[in-house]
Protein backbone atom coordinates (compact mmCIF):
# COMPACT_ATOMS: atom_id res chain seq x y z
CA UNK A 1 0.00 0.00 0.00
CA UNK A 2 2.71 2.45 0.90
CA UNK A 3 4.48 1.79 -2.40
CA UNK A 4 1.48 3.34 -4.16
CA UNK A 5 2.37 6.71 -2.71
CA UNK A 6 4.38 8.44 -5.40
CA UNK A 7 7.26 10.86 -4.79
CA UNK A 8 5.25 13.83 -6.05
CA UNK A 9 2.40 12.98 -3.70
CA UNK A 10 4.82 12.62 -0.81
CA UNK A 11 6.42 16.01 -1.41
CA UNK A 12 3.04 17.68 -1.67
CA UNK A 13 2.18 16.38 1.80
CA UNK A 14 3.98 19.21 3.66
CA UNK A 15 4.37 19.02 7.42
CA UNK A 16 2.45 21.73 9.34
CA UNK A 17 5.76 23.33 10.44
CA UNK A 18 8.20 23.69 7.56
CA UNK A 19 11.69 23.18 9.05
CA UNK A 20 13.73 24.29 6.06
CA UNK A 21 16.69 26.50 7.08
CA UNK A 22 15.35 29.44 5.10
CA UNK A 23 11.99 29.51 6.82
CA UNK A 24 13.63 28.94 10.21
CA UNK A 25 15.98 31.88 9.68
CA UNK A 26 13.01 34.04 8.73
CA UNK A 27 11.18 32.99 11.90
CA UNK A 28 14.28 33.76 13.93
CA UNK A 29 14.57 37.23 12.38
CA UNK A 30 10.95 37.90 13.29
CA UNK A 31 11.78 36.76 16.80
CA UNK A 32 14.69 39.21 16.97
CA UNK A 33 12.46 42.04 15.75
CA UNK A 34 9.84 41.24 18.39
CA UNK A 35 12.58 41.09 21.01
CA UNK A 36 13.74 44.56 19.98
CA UNK A 37 10.23 45.98 20.32
CA UNK A 38 9.74 44.33 23.70
CA UNK A 39 13.12 45.64 24.87
CA UNK A 40 12.22 49.18 23.89
CA UNK A 41 8.94 48.90 25.79
CA UNK A 42 10.79 47.56 28.84
CA UNK A 43 13.38 50.32 28.58
CA UNK A 44 10.71 53.02 28.43
CA UNK A 45 9.03 51.55 31.52
CA UNK A 46 12.35 51.39 33.38
CA UNK A 47 13.06 55.02 32.49
CA UNK A 48 9.61 56.11 33.58
CA UNK A 49 10.03 54.44 36.98
CA UNK A 50 13.50 55.94 37.47
CA UNK A 51 14.11 58.69 40.05
CA UNK A 52 15.65 60.89 37.30
CA UNK A 53 13.93 59.90 34.04
CA UNK A 54 15.46 61.06 30.80
CA UNK A 55 13.32 62.93 28.27
CA UNK A 56 12.37 61.03 25.13
CA UNK A 57 14.31 63.48 22.97
CA UNK A 58 18.03 63.61 23.70
CA UNK A 59 19.56 66.83 25.05
CA UNK A 60 23.26 67.46 24.52
CA UNK A 61 25.46 68.22 27.56
CA UNK A 62 25.42 71.89 26.56
CA UNK A 63 21.61 71.94 26.44
CA UNK A 64 21.36 70.18 29.81
CA UNK A 65 23.93 72.48 31.32
CA UNK A 66 22.05 75.50 30.05
CA UNK A 67 18.84 74.17 31.56
CA UNK A 68 20.65 73.49 34.83
CA UNK A 69 22.03 77.03 35.02
CA UNK A 70 18.50 78.37 35.02
CA UNK A 71 18.12 76.95 38.52
CA UNK A 72 20.88 79.30 39.65
CA UNK A 73 20.32 82.44 37.65
CA UNK A 74 17.62 84.04 35.54
CA UNK A 75 19.59 82.74 32.64
CA UNK A 76 20.57 84.89 29.74
CA UNK A 77 21.32 82.98 26.55
CA UNK A 78 24.41 80.81 26.88
CA UNK A 79 26.38 82.95 24.49
CA UNK A 80 29.36 84.73 25.97
CA UNK A 81 33.01 85.06 25.03
CA UNK A 82 34.92 81.92 25.97
CA UNK A 83 37.25 81.97 28.99
CA UNK A 84 40.96 82.46 28.15
CA UNK A 85 43.24 79.43 28.13
CA UNK A 86 46.42 78.96 30.20
CA UNK A 87 49.28 76.51 29.69
CA UNK A 88 50.94 74.20 32.19
CA UNK A 89 53.63 76.71 33.28
CA UNK A 90 51.07 79.44 33.92
CA UNK A 91 48.88 76.95 35.76
CA UNK A 92 51.78 75.88 38.02
CA UNK A 93 52.68 79.52 38.73
CA UNK A 94 49.10 80.27 39.68
CA UNK A 95 49.04 77.22 41.94
CA UNK A 96 52.28 78.29 43.66
CA UNK A 97 50.85 81.77 44.23
CA UNK A 98 48.10 80.18 46.36
CA UNK A 99 45.63 82.99 45.64
CA UNK A 100 44.01 81.21 42.70
CA UNK A 101 41.02 78.94 43.13
CA UNK A 102 41.56 75.72 41.18
CA UNK A 103 38.43 73.87 40.09
CA UNK A 104 38.24 70.34 38.68
CA UNK A 105 35.30 69.99 36.26
CA UNK A 106 35.47 66.19 35.92
CA UNK A 107 32.89 63.81 37.45
CA UNK A 108 33.40 63.15 41.16
CA UNK A 109 34.53 59.57 40.56
CA UNK A 110 37.47 60.76 38.45
CA UNK A 111 38.24 63.53 40.96
CA UNK A 112 38.45 61.01 43.77
CA UNK A 113 40.93 58.83 41.88
CA UNK A 114 43.33 61.72 41.44
CA UNK A 115 43.33 65.52 41.19
CA UNK A 116 45.61 68.54 41.37
CA UNK A 117 46.48 69.22 45.05
CA UNK A 118 44.25 71.94 46.43
CA UNK A 119 41.67 71.68 43.63
CA UNK A 120 37.96 71.64 44.44
CA UNK A 121 35.48 69.56 42.47
CA UNK A 122 32.89 71.53 40.51
CA UNK A 123 31.77 68.80 38.16
CA UNK A 124 30.15 69.75 34.86
CA UNK A 125 27.73 66.86 35.14
CA UNK A 126 26.54 67.88 38.61
CA UNK A 127 27.15 71.61 38.45
CA UNK A 128 24.14 72.86 40.37
CA UNK A 129 24.65 70.46 43.30
CA UNK A 130 28.42 71.09 43.52
CA UNK A 131 27.98 74.85 43.19
CA UNK A 132 25.58 74.87 46.13
CA UNK A 133 27.88 72.58 48.10
CA UNK A 134 30.83 74.96 47.55
CA UNK A 135 28.56 77.91 48.48
CA UNK A 136 30.75 80.06 50.76
CA UNK A 137 33.97 79.25 48.90
CA UNK A 138 32.46 80.38 45.60
CA UNK A 139 31.05 83.54 47.15
CA UNK A 140 34.50 84.49 48.46
CA UNK A 141 36.06 83.78 45.06
CA UNK A 142 33.93 86.21 43.06
CA UNK A 143 36.84 88.58 42.45
CA UNK A 144 39.65 86.08 42.73
CA UNK A 145 41.39 84.38 39.83
CA UNK A 146 39.87 80.99 39.07
CA UNK A 147 41.32 78.31 36.82
CA UNK A 148 39.23 75.35 35.70
CA UNK A 149 40.56 72.09 34.29
CA UNK A 150 39.18 68.72 33.19
CA UNK A 151 40.69 65.66 31.49
CA UNK A 152 42.45 67.62 28.74
CA UNK A 153 42.55 66.71 25.07
CA UNK A 154 39.04 66.79 23.62
CA UNK A 155 37.36 67.38 27.00
CA UNK A 156 35.05 70.43 26.98
CA UNK A 157 33.85 70.26 30.57
CA UNK A 158 36.33 72.87 31.80
CA UNK A 159 35.24 75.32 29.13
CA UNK A 160 31.56 74.78 29.97
CA UNK A 161 32.13 75.26 33.70
CA UNK A 162 34.32 78.32 33.12
CA UNK A 163 31.69 79.94 30.91
CA UNK A 164 29.01 79.12 33.46
CA UNK A 165 31.03 80.90 36.14
CA UNK A 166 31.43 83.92 33.88
CA UNK A 167 27.67 83.87 33.38
CA UNK A 168 27.24 83.83 37.14
CA UNK A 169 29.30 87.01 37.45
CA UNK A 170 32.78 85.69 38.22
CA UNK A 171 35.19 88.14 36.61
CA UNK A 172 38.52 86.32 36.35
CA UNK A 173 38.08 82.78 35.04
CA UNK A 174 40.43 80.89 32.74
CA UNK A 175 40.84 77.31 31.53
CA UNK A 176 43.89 75.07 31.86
CA UNK A 177 43.45 73.30 28.53
CA UNK A 178 46.15 70.66 29.09
CA UNK A 179 44.05 69.35 31.96
CA UNK A 180 44.63 66.29 34.10
CA UNK A 181 46.36 64.54 31.20
CA UNK A 182 49.11 67.19 31.02
CA UNK A 183 49.45 67.48 34.80
CA UNK A 184 49.88 63.75 35.38
CA UNK A 185 52.08 63.31 32.29
CA UNK A 186 54.49 65.88 33.78
CA UNK A 187 54.80 63.69 36.89
CA UNK A 188 53.47 66.42 39.17
CA UNK A 189 52.02 65.80 42.66
CA UNK A 190 48.61 64.18 42.91
CA UNK A 191 45.96 64.23 45.61
CA UNK A 192 43.24 61.62 45.98
CA UNK A 193 39.91 61.38 47.75
CA UNK A 194 36.39 62.70 47.31
CA UNK A 195 35.29 66.29 47.59
CA UNK A 196 34.42 67.24 51.22
Amino acid sequence: MTSAITGSTATSMRLPHDRSPGSQILRDLIGVALLAVASLAAGLMINRSSSAPLPVVYQSPEQRFDAELTTLVAAPPFKIAPAPAVGLDQFRSALDGKSTLILDARPSAFFAVGHVPGALNLARDDFARDYRRLGAVMQDAHDKPIIVYCSGGDCHDSRLVANALLTLGFSNVSVFTGGWEAWSAAGLPVSTGSAP
Binding site: L35, A36, A38, S39, L40, A42, G43, L44, I46, N47, L54, P55, V56, V57, Y58, Q59, S60
Partner: peptide, 19 residues
Amino acid sequence: PAILINLLAFGLPPFEIAC
Protein backbone atom coordinates in the same frame (compact mmCIF):
# COMPACT_ATOMS: atom_id res chain seq x y z
CA PRO B 1 19.23 62.18 15.25
CA ALA B 2 18.33 63.40 18.75
CA ILE B 3 14.89 61.75 18.60
CA LEU B 4 16.46 58.28 18.35
CA ILE B 5 19.39 58.60 20.76
CA ASN B 6 17.50 58.32 24.03
CA LEU B 7 15.20 55.63 22.58
CA LEU B 8 18.28 53.56 21.80
CA ALA B 9 19.64 54.30 25.27
CA PHE B 10 16.36 53.02 26.76
CA GLY B 11 16.00 49.92 24.61
CA LEU B 12 19.51 48.60 24.11
CA PRO B 13 20.35 47.55 27.71
CA PRO B 14 17.21 45.36 28.12
CA PHE B 15 17.86 43.97 24.63
CA GLU B 16 21.43 43.00 25.56
CA ILE B 17 20.26 41.38 28.81
CA ALA B 18 17.51 39.52 26.94
CA CYS B 19 20.03 38.29 24.35
